[in-house]
Amino acid sequence: MTDDRVWGDVGVFRPRELGQPSRTTGEPWRLDGVTDVPDTVADAARVGTLEVRAASSRGARHRVNGHVRQDAMGVAELGGRFVLVAVADGVGDASHAHRGAHLAVRHAINYLTWALPGADLDVVDMVGALRAADRAVREAGPAPETRRTTLTVAAVELGWTGQGHRYRAVRVGDSPALMLTDGVFVPLFGKRGGGTECLPTPRGPADGVRGVLRPGEALAVTSAGVGIPVRESPVGTYLAQAWARPPGPVAFLHHLQFDLRAFDEDRTAVVVWAR
């Protein structure tokens, strides 16, 4: 017999409680009016000696209020040489932020698939991916301010001189990139480029970082719904342990469903492990 007072997963699929539970725990979800943005998307791959896991999920607050997921993510392989990553976090009060986020991700990845073949990662114009995304968000229709979104883009090149994998990342806004090394998440970007910066037409310069992803490390590109609790709560310890090695795709998605009060935004993460 079904008890209509009970809602949500039980057993092994129940979200991991990492403290006082969210006020939305146990509340039924509501459907939103946008049919082409699903509640959750996930992807996974092995590319040479890299393992890739990716997922984007509607936050608990959006689920119970019937609001569309405003995060977007994209991941692609390019010629067996590069793994491309893009994560966008639509600005909450923008009525079409989900459209801006999806446009930004798609056009950033498309730019890199055009610019990188035959190019050297050290000199390719990574900021061009942000410009392409900005143009797409701005020109998608009237009232571009309704499509405001952050964007973080990364490219990882396989097998650089046997010492690891070169990477570069750029961003507009506060969507983090982090390195998981020796069981600790280390932010790759500084404080500059905070939440006031977004597409379209950002006011300041983009943040940029480059480095080497070494065996045993993982590069994580996330939305604020993952990056902020990683820095400010027990979520950081939990995910560092859960992601010490590449989990299965379903397990990776489950890891993002942690339950912790005050952290109920959309959650998106793309993680690249060097095996």
Results as ranks from 00 to 15, higher is better:
F189E: 10
R63L: 15
L18E: 06
T181A: 14
R5M: 07
W114A: 14
T149H: 05
A140M: 03
V235S: 04
M126K: 01
V186M: 14
R30D: 01
R275D: 14
V272H: 01
D3M: 06
D93T: 15
L188E: 10
L260C: 08
L130S: 06
A115P: 02
V75F: 03
R245V: 15
A143D: 15
P176C: 05
P246K: 04
A76T: 09
V52H: 05
G74S: 13
A94I: 04
R106F: 10
D207T: 01
V91D: 09
A206I: 03
G26Y: 02
E77A: 14
P229G: 00
P246S: 12
P28A: 05
Y111S: 11
I228K: 15
G128S: 04
R231P: 00
R148N: 10
R166W: 02
G100F: 00
G59I: 01
H67F: 12
A108S: 14
D4F: 13
P246M: 06
V87C: 13
R171K: 09
G118M: 08
G48H: 03
R147K: 10
D9P: 14
V170T: 06
T146A: 10
E265S: 14
P187E: 09
G141Y: 06
A88H: 11
A136I: 11
Q163S: 12
T24C: 09
V172M: 10
R53F: 02
L219E: 03
V221R: 05
L103C: 04
E77N: 13
P215R: 13
A86V: 05
Q257S: 15
G74F: 02
Q163E: 14
L188S: 03
A129E: 08
H255C: 13
P249I: 05
G193H: 08
V172I: 15
A108D: 04
G26N: 05
R148G: 14
P117T: 07
S22V: 00
D89H: 07
N110I: 00
E265Q: 12
A133Q: 07
D266N: 11
D134G: 13
D71K: 07
P247G: 08
S56I: 06
D93Y: 04
L31M: 08
E139H: 10
M179W: 13
A240W: 11
T237H: 07
A155K: 07
L158N: 00
T222D: 01
V91A: 14
L199N: 07
D9I: 00
H165A: 03
R135D: 12
W29C: 10
V270N: 01
V10D: 12
V64K: 03
E232L: 13
V170D: 02
E197G: 11
G92I: 08
P117K: 05
V156C: 02
H96Y: 09
R171D: 00
T24F: 13
P246V: 12
V272A: 02
A119R: 14
I228Q: 15
D125Y: 02
A206R: 01
D39E: 15
G195N: 12
G211D: 10
R231D: 09
G141S: 06
V271L: 03
H107M: 09
H67G: 08
V172N: 07
A220G: 02
L50I: 11
T237D: 14
A262M: 11
M126S: 03
A94Q: 11
T161G: 00
G80F: 06
E232F: 10
R61P: 00
G193S: 11
N110Q: 12
D207C: 13
R261F: 01
L260R: 07
Y238M: 11
A104V: 02
D71Q: 10
R168W: 04
W160P: 01
